[in-house]
């Protein structure tokens, strides 16, 4: 139990620093996707918890912080690009689904990028 304890301690101590650091790769990814920084980006800069709050809307089905309790895909720790690709494929309808195409269409691409970024940064296991 020593290892995880130390880990938690250090991640807590740097929690503030981390949340600022996290934003930049996400914003970078928005630019890479050619989405630019529109309203979603501006809101993200103003609201440090936006990505966390958006990702929490997925937790009902995919588990807290994307760690599935079973029967549904776990999303925590997945590569950000892969998550984003999947979400955009659901949104465009190119990826077949029973429900995810309907859910993904409810979010802007900027919001989906924030969600992908947040979930990819979570530990796959508690």
């Amino acid at each position: 139990m020593v290892r995880p304890r130390l880990r938690r301690k250090s991640s807590r101590a740097h929690a503030k620093k981390e949340s600022k650091v996290k934003l930049s790769p996400i914003l970078a990814s928005l630019c890479l996707l050619g989405l630019g920084i529109s309203n979603g980006g501006a809101a993200a800069a103003a609201d440090a918890n936006l990505a966390r709050n958006l990702a929490a809307t997925c937790a009902n089905c995919h588990g807290t912080d994307g760690r599935s309790a079973g029967g549904m895909d776990s999303l925590a720790g997945e590569a950000r690009d892969r998550l984003m690709q999947k979400l955009l494929a659901f949104k465009s309808g190119s990826r077949p689904a029973t429900i995810m195409h309907q859910i993904a269409r409810g979010y802007s691409d900027e919001q989906l990028a924030l969600i992908a970024g947040y979930l990819s940064a979570q530990r796959a296991h508690e």
Partner: peptide, 20 residues
């Protein structure tokens, strides 16, 4: 039947999201 399985998975995950 697939959505039936998703329904059970939904319950399992949302109960965990609230209580686990």
């Amino acid at each position: 039947d697939l959505e039936g399985q998703y329904a059970f998975a939904w319950a399992k995950n949302i109960w965990a999201d609230m209580l686990a």
